Computed example of a mutant assay.
Amino acid sequence: MTPSKPRPNWVARQPRAHALALLATVLLALPTAARAQPTYTLFAPTSTPAVPSVTNDFAPVELGVKFQSDIEGDILGIRFYKGTANTGTHVGSLWSAAGARLAFATFTGETASGWQDYYYWPDYWVQDRPGLFTGSGLAMRFADLDGTPLDVYQIATQMTDESGQSYPLHIDTLLDNALGTQGYYGAFNANMHVDSQPSAGSSGSAAIIASAQREGVPVITAKQLLAWLDAREATQVSTVAFTGTVLTFDLASPARNLSLMVPTRTTTGQTLLSVTRAGAPVTTVTRTIKGVDFAFIDGALAGTYTATYN
């Protein structure tokens, strides 16, 4: 149990000019409940019952434990210890102090023995509201206590098959807001259990992929996102100088297909006339980002750039 809030996923290690991508289903191997408040469990993973199972009683029974919490929180999962003789279907239930059955779930993907877990991320957190889990919309880098960046990233999970989310509502809303005038760009993560929950996971993942294909948005893996992050971190823009009519800067180690964004207008109203690289003209395309016009240099190469204003 824990005192609330949805969880992000972790991505180890260190994104392309247009930061819009979808993570394919079941990509991030280390989901974690990263919250300021701690998470508690009644039994440690190393705890085992004195009698894991019996072999001479074949009648189904319901066993449980009664507990009381000293703090307010949410029940995020239920678990039981399975002995080698505990075959068949297992259903976990949550009961109120008055004996009312609040929730139940069938365990899937069980191992032959040991602790079996069913975790739950309540739909009342989300209330089927698209974009609730957006965070920054991009992978966020961890830092050490002294501020040193670590080679570990964290990304939020915007779409799941366990939080009462409707599809394609959620993916369509995220894509519309990213591709539309609002410019809510991001790498949107989908956590679909196509292995343990084929029906829910497959229907959600199929809707997500179909919407992405319709809009021409790539569906990528976590590994590809890490490669994107590495390329972004390696790109360096330096020696930036502005004289009032001329902007110069150096670009080193540019990511593949990098798009540079140069303002088309200065704060004093001067408009962009031309952009050159090492003295040779470069092609630019004007695009509006959140109400501001920029001259995009698509597929930018390394070198010294000069932007001239009137």
Rank of each mutant, 00 (worst) to 15 (best):
1 M>R: 09
2 T>R: 11
6 P>E: 15
8 P>D: 06
10 W>T: 11
10 W>H: 10
10 W>N: 09
14 Q>V: 07
16 R>L: 09
17 A>F: 04
18 H>Q: 12
21 A>S: 06
24 A>R: 01
27 L>P: 03
32 T>H: 12
32 T>K: 12
38 P>Q: 12
42 L>S: 13
45 P>H: 08
45 P>V: 01
46 T>Q: 10
53 S>Q: 09
57 D>L: 03
58 F>I: 08
58 F>R: 04
63 L>Y: 03
67 F>S: 13
68 Q>S: 15
70 D>Y: 11
71 I>F: 07
75 I>N: 02
76 L>Y: 09
78 I>A: 00
81 Y>S: 05
82 K>R: 14
83 G>M: 01
84 T>W: 00
86 N>P: 11
87 T>C: 05
89 T>W: 01
90 H>M: 13
94 L>W: 11
95 W>F: 15
95 W>M: 15
97 A>L: 12
98 A>V: 15
100 A>G: 12
107 F>R: 03
107 F>P: 05
109 G>K: 06
109 G>H: 11
110 E>P: 06
111 T>Y: 15
112 A>V: 14
116 Q>K: 10
116 Q>D: 10
117 D>G: 12
120 Y>M: 12
121 W>Y: 14
122 P>M: 15
127 Q>C: 09
128 D>Q: 07
131 G>L: 06
136 S>Y: 07
138 L>S: 05
141 R>Y: 03
141 R>Q: 11
142 F>L: 09
142 F>D: 08
142 F>V: 04
146 D>Q: 05
146 D>L: 03
147 G>F: 01
150 L>A: 08
151 D>Q: 13
156 A>T: 08
159 M>F: 06
163 S>P: 01
169 L>T: 15
171 I>G: 00
171 I>T: 02
172 D>T: 10
173 T>P: 00
173 T>A: 13
176 D>A: 15
178 A>D: 04
179 L>W: 08
181 T>Y: 10
181 T>H: 13
184 Y>T: 14
185 Y>E: 13
186 G>N: 04
187 A>L: 03
196 S>R: 10
197 Q>W: 09
202 S>R: 07
206 A>D: 13
212 A>D: 05
216 G>E: 04
219 V>M: 05
221 T>D: 06
221 T>V: 07
226 L>K: 00
227 A>S: 01
227 A>P: 04
231 A>S: 07
233 E>L: 04
233 E>C: 06
235 T>M: 05
236 Q>C: 11
238 S>L: 05
241 A>K: 14
246 V>R: 15
251 L>S: 05
252 A>C: 04
262 V>F: 04
262 V>T: 09
266 T>A: 07
266 T>S: 08
271 T>N: 08
274 S>P: 00
283 T>G: 09
284 T>D: 08
284 T>V: 11
287 R>C: 04
288 T>A: 02
289 I>D: 09
297 I>N: 01
299 G>A: 12
304 T>H: 14
306 T>S: 08
307 A>V: 00
308 T>P: 02
308 T>K: 08
